[in-house]
Design a protein around this nucleic acid. Sequence first.
DNA 1: TCGGATCAGTACCGCTCGGTACACAATTTG
DNA 2: CAAATTGTGTACCGAGCGGTACTGATCCGA
Lengths: 210, 210
Amino acid sequence: MPQRGRPRGFDADEALERALEVFWRQGYEGASMSDLTAAMGINKPSLYAAFGSKEELFRKAVARYAEQDMGYARRAFAQPTAYEVVATLLRENVLAVTRPDRPAGCLSIQGGTACSSDNAAVAGFLAGSRLAGEHALADRFTRAVAEGDLPADADPAALARFVMSVTEGQAIHAAAGVAREALRQTAEIALAGFAAVSGARLPARADTPA
Amino acid sequence: MPQRGRPRGFDADEALERALEVFWRQGYEGASMSDLTAAMGINKPSLYAAFGSKEELFRKAVARYAEQDMGYARRAFAQPTAYEVVATLLRENVLAVTRPDRPAGCLSIQGGTACSSDNAAVAGFLAGSRLAGEHALADRFTRAVAEGDLPADADPAALARFVMSVTEGQAIHAAAGVAREALRQTAEIALAGFAAVSGARLPARADTPA
DNA sequence: TCGGATCAGTACCGCTCGGTACACAATTTG
DNA sequence: CAAATTGTGTACCGAGCGGTACTGATCCGA
């Protein structure tokens, strides 16, 4: 479709990226429209024309986040065994929540776990998307049981809940300023614990780094 | 000291309790002064006279929370062995974050992990108090190494970080509505993982419930 | 070159925020 | 009783909130 009217004077993708970082650092309620427009380099009417409302902007930011910052989760799910799925998930999560070029922690939690009653939908939306990820991990574990790299009596949902609890706790630690190397240690403890408790089949060659 | 002037028309302790619950459910920024005064049953000037400011009220609420809702942590630290410390901590944490008579989750996280730049001190204060608890757990593990119920090569700080990550993740799960029984499973997985990885000396009689 | 369409910028909307001035009520002390 | 002291309730403060009306500027197709 050919363009009609005056062309947009800013890159919507880049503006969304800036908004994402503000939401990540300050949370949904803590990010004011002034904070957002200042970071995005546009005025409010442009923001509303391009993104609809503050809440729609937030949801689009979360979608962008899921695509470009949670990609490691999809890579993890594609690993051949449950052990490697968890190893990838835990280790990549440490990197993701401590990237020097991004805010610390995870948007899904920093965005807001508690909100005023007006914005309860935002907290609910974030909680729901985290639980959806957990459900996907449980499904992956169910497949692992079928494929024999988890024992038949393993509880996929409970194991997934354990792994996600660790990653969420790590995200909170990162947001509190805990260093990447410290979180790496924790991830290895959690991984070894997962292996011991789940009875997961281990990979042939040890891949625990020195 | 004898009373002078008009006596206070409300119970400050009970009012603080109501404020605590509002902060717990809605977070520091999500709780407006109107929300607070409505729940406390007093007017704003009374609140300011009795508690100073919104932030001071919050800090007092957190102190009260630490005393009456985190008591299980002190009980846990008093257990005779590292294994029992962790078992108590994880199991009692599940109960604490899913009490039917309280908001779901944990005030220290629901209070706010991310804030507007004006309120950054609040998020920092909460993060600091969580890390202080973790440090206390690490110290308890150091003692356990000395007492021989953790092996000499155990890393107290890393183990403490692991345990706290799990409890924080569980708190987030609870706030998202995950049921107590589900979190109990997760706690048992984490406990068994801790035992396996740390090499903690197990208690003589198995105390894993059916 | 002109009309329709879309975007940008200013200036504003009603509302709520955290916080307070002030008059009045209730109590103790003399 | 009066004076001193402290809490209560109303009514208000300046500031910032999320969101928008409106005026120009800038593009396209005819």
